[in-house]
């Protein structure tokens, strides 16, 4: 990754620039639900527009020996760079709108029949801006990104924290098969397979570590809502991507404003 240039419009097509221009004149689009919209507004933010970033990536090929347990770094790098590109493009759109940040970011991976080794990485969210002109950007001056819904965003601000950015860690790992001699000597009994356990453990650990490094670089106080997912994107059964995604938060220095919770019994039936 090269240094970030806030004026850069690289990767945004011409029509996108036009759309952003319209957004800047006061007309906004958003994918917030009504509830989310009300809460985001209540928190002092206005939506300024729907922002999108996308990147179609050709994922290279990498093979490991059948019994070798190791990270496939070419694939890791591909998954990582592609998501980064999509997110940076979305961020640039938000920056063009003069937004403070993006809420409700969804990261999707699309695979199409016309390109088996290709994947589209899409990031979509709603850019928001503080009404009072207070700057709420991430510590590095870029618009923050978060996968929080409007409700979560409001709650987080109430706890005296604000989102600093989405952090992620990805690791594509080849889990080595066991050698035939080992298989025979262990057969018939219940045994833990240390090499598989270790491989899966190491892969998760690498993903978590990378996510943590990203948060540290952002100067975050913590990460909430970490989701760990394991997917095999058509690489065969022994190649697995471990992906950790969370929202890094920083303290605003404001006091906590969470009232003591009250137990409430909803008298509505689920269907009424």
């Amino acid at each position: 990754m090269t240094d970030y240039n806030p004026q850069s419009l690289e990767g945004i097509p011409e029509s996108g620039v036009e759309r952003l221009e319209q957004n800047r004149q006061g007309l906004y689009t958003s994918d917030l639900s009504v509830n989310e919209f009300l809460l985001v507004t209540e928190a002092g933010f206005d939506p300024v527009g729907l922002v999108v970033g996308s990147s179609i990536f050709h994922i290279g090929i990498q093979v490991a020996g059948p019994t070798q347990s190791r990270e496939l770094d070419t694939l890791s790098q591909a998954m990582y760079s592609a998501r980064h590109l999509a997110m940076t493009r979305m961020e640039e759109e938000a920056d063009q709108l003069g937004a403070d940040g993006i809420v409700g970011v969804r990261l999707d991976i699309g695979r199409y029949e016309w390109g088996p080794s290709m994947a589209e990485f899409i990031a979509i969210g709603t850019a928001v801006k503080h009404r009072g002109g207070e700057l709420h950007r991430a510590p590095n001056g870029r618009p923050f990104q978060s996968d929080l819904s409007g409700q979560e965003f409001w709650t987080l601000l109430r706890t005296g924290h604000r989102p600093a950015g989405m952090v992620m860690g990805s690791c594509v790992f080849h889990v080595g098969r066991r050698g035939p001699l080992r298989t025979i000597s262990q057969t018939g009994r219940n045994v833990e397979l240390p090499n598989y356990t270790q491989a899966l453990y190491q892969a998760r650990e690498l993903a978590m570590q990378r996510m943590q490094t990203e948060a540290q670089e952002l100067g975050a106080a913590g990460i909430v809502g970490v989701s760990l997912s394991e997917r095999s994107h058509g690489w065969g059964s022994h190649v697995i991507e471990f992906f950790a995604l969370g929202t890094a938060i920083v303290s605003t220095g404001e006091e906590k404003k969470i009232e003591p919770p009250v137990a409430v019994l909803d008298l509505n039936d689920p269907r009424s």
Partner: peptide, 22 residues
């Protein structure tokens, strides 16, 4: 410097209210 958590924002807010730290 940092904590990591699988808590949702609502859980995080409630935990902060109760006292324990993630």
């Amino acid at each position: 410097s940092l904590f990591t958590s699988g808590l949702s924002v609502k859980e995080f807010a409630l935990l902060g209210r109760m006292g324990p730290q993630p």
